[in-house]
């Protein structure tokens, strides 16, 4: 079947959506992290000017959409990951449905708030 098995959610419950999203965001974060670290480790400029100019690009209106998506990935992966850790070893298994709903709401709220801050920072 291969990894395509992770992306079948026709007819599936919200749990499968959460799983698929967790995988997807995980991959995105991994790629981001690698790029981030690679970039930082190749910086030769000791004054920090190159770094500052890079930050200036990312905190800009044109870049906002990527920022917001990146925040979504981070927030969802973190919040949903916390939910999964909670359920590890069968704990709170009986509450898995309400917990899923609560954690998704938390993720969305945190994401919207963070997006708003990012929006403000980019001069809104």
């Amino acid at each position: 079947m291969g990894v395509s098995g992770w992306f079948r959610f026709k007819g599936r419950s919200l749990f499968s959506w959460a799983f698929t999203f967790q995988r997807l965001t995980g991959v995105v974060l991994l790629i981001y992290l690698l790029a981030h670290l690679t970039y930082l480790s190749t910086l030769l400029d000791t004054t920090g000017a190159t770094y500052e100019s890079m930050i200036a690009i990312t905190v800009s209106r044109q870049f906002l959409i990527f920022d917001i998506l990146l925040i979504l990935c981070g927030v969802f992966h973190g919040v949903n990951g916390f939910r999964i850790i909670l359920h590890e070893f069968g704990i709170a298994y009986g509450y898995r449905k309400p917990l899923l709903a609560i954690f998704i709401v938390i993720a969305v709220v945190v994401w919207l708030y963070a997006s708003y801050i990012m929006y403000s920072l980019t001069g809104g």
């Binding site: 419950s13 499968s16 799983f19 359920h87």
Partner: peptide, 9 residues
């Protein structure tokens, strides 16, 4: 197990 929990569903 990745706790997708679809099995229980």
């Amino acid at each position: 197990c990745h706790l997708a929990m679809e099995c229980s569903e």
